[in-house]
Amino acid sequence: MFAFCTDPATLDPLRWFSCYLTNGAHFLFYQSFLVVFALLAVTAPVSLAFGFAAASASRSHILPVAWLGKLYTAMVRGVPDIVFFLFFILVLDQGIEYLRHQIACPEWAEEIRQGANFLVCPEARTPSSNAPQWVHEVYGFSLAVFTYAIVFGAFCGNVLYGAMRAVPHAQLETGAAYGMSRAQVFWRILVPQMWIYALPGLGNIWLILIKATPLLFLLGIEDIVYWARELGGSRNSVYQYPHPDWRFWYFLALLVFYLCLTRVSEIGLARLTGHLSRGQATAAGDTLRKAAT
């Protein structure tokens, strides 16, 4: 990085650290923070969509659909999220390959599940073994994101279902009295109003999601935990920058990073609540109205 970094062994501590913290391995570490943000950015809207679909399904008049929606939102209650993470990523991966196998090679005679192996035909391998490494990594990351979205979608579904029920029923009846169809009442009255009721719960889920991002490590993604462990481990003179076991300091840095992320989110959520409370028939909205006059 810097010109004076050519021979780290001779440097004074300040320069040594400025070289050490800017070497190639550390840049990969810094990049892995982007993985966390990418995960948050993609997972949040997708889970919200899953949750919305689940909550809408739970309100359905067709019983099997309602049951499906309720079953999905209920599943996260009794079982640790981490079990779902480890389960779904394997199920998704095998499921995709199984489907592609059925389509690509229907005449394949051998059993797919042979003892400890899961064998599909070469055409069905996902991603193809010829694919460059980045395709493998993107595929792995996408699976992880989808897994997160399934679990957090169930959380969102819980919150949105509650929020939909919290919208004053009289308003919905008023809509119906004006001759609106069920769909119109849903989209024009229920959906725009439910957000303020959903916000505390959704904010909570957002904070939970932030705190769940290090679990990416368990899904085999080279995330910040992977790099903190890798870079922090003690290094002998095979490396240019030998040092003792510094994992504690690397994890401390991660802890501070997460604390900052939580704090910023809390402040942002507080502002958003204030924004959405305007003109609402809630205590917070009333306070705002009084403050304005």
Binding site: I89, T126, G220
Partner: peptide, 30 residues
């Protein structure tokens, strides 16, 4: 912790299919 969960399928065992591969993926621990 385990990457094997990411991809769980077997490449063709047949030698003919194997020689068609042009990229060899080398696994190591690092």
């Amino acid at each position: 912790m385990k990457k094997l969960i990411l991809t769980a399928s077997l490449l063709a065992i047949a030698a003919g299919a194997a020689s068609a591969q042009d990229v060899v993926r080398m696994g190591t621990e690092g």
